[in-house]
């Protein structure tokens, strides 16, 4: 959630000629090679491509976890490359909600505490924090699992906890990197229905996937290959 008034009019995300190269020994790998795109509020976008196409790297760049080698990235109108560690942490905390393929929950903590983590770093006081975490867990349908640890939950439930954690700070964008990759198909479908609901509630969502039926949920599909965008358009048009 951004407090800047004109953020309603400018794109949430604007990438301009983003490059990301890795050095593996003597070899240089172009994970992203001149990627430019913009995303507006309440868009529901799927990013597709074969493995190694750079879709996860793009996700990490958008999520402020990775720093592009070259190019500019504006998040809510602010240039990310100009941010220091504290501002980057703030952006991850307030603007981005991340959902990982492997859930990435804190194993020793309860579901409630896991959802509270982003609020702790946002400096929210305990009472309010717990109330908001409860509400987020309620939204994803886990009101009765709040005090369970991840090891006591199914994969689908764990991913719901992760989604609740991503939503609890009311971020501008929900980034999901293969959110159904570790789930069976019926649980995956459930998670995707949850994303549909969240989108209808006004959230901006980007989902990385390589499964067409998941991309069907999105309104816009971006395809990547070898670090470059090969197509970008409304879903259902290609195939």
């Amino acid at each position: 959630m951004s407090a800047i008034p004109d953020s309603q009019t400018q794109p949430i995300i604007r990438l301009e000629d983003i490059e990301r190269t890795y050095h593996m020994g003597a070899e240089t790998i172009h994970a992203l090679h001149g990627v430019s795109l913009t995303m507006e509020r309440n868009e529901y976008t799927a990013v597709m491509g074969p493995s190694g196409s750079g879709k996860s790297t793009m996700m990490n760049v958008i999520g402020c976890l990775d720093t592009p080698t070259a190019g500019n990235y504006w998040l809510n109108g602010q240039l990310v490359s100009a941010m220091n560690d504290r501002q980057l942490a703030g952006a991850r905390n307030r603007d981005i909600g991340f959902v990982f393929q492997t859930f990435n929950l804190l194993a020793r903590m309860t579901a409630l505490h896991n959802v509270e983590v982003p609020l702790i770093y946002a400096g929210v006081k305990r009472k309010e924090r717990q109330a908001r975490a409860r509400q987020a867990l309620d939204t994803v349908g886990l009101a009765d699992r709040m005090l369970h640890r991840p090891s006591e939950m199914s994969g689908g439930q764990r991913q719901r906890v992760a989604i609740a954690r991503a939503l609890v700070t009311e971020p501008s964008i929900l980034l999901a990197d293969e959110p159904t990759g570790n789930l069976d198909s019926s649980t995956g479908a459930e998670i995707m229905r949850l994303f549909d609901i969240l989108h209808e509630a006004g959230n901006t969502i980007i989902v990385v996937t390589h499964e067409p039926y998941i991309a069907d949920h999105a309104r816009r599909v971006i395809r990547l290959s070898d670090g470059q965008i090969t197509s970008d358009g409304p879903s259902g048009e290609m195939e």
Binding site: L65, R86, A89, G90, N93, R94, N104, L106, V117, Y121
Partner: peptide
């Protein structure tokens, strides 16, 4: 540590 950083923890935290 990675998870906490992704959730908005600063280096200081």
């Amino acid at each position: 540590i990675g998870i906490r950083k992704a959730m908005g923890a600063t280096k200081g935290n």
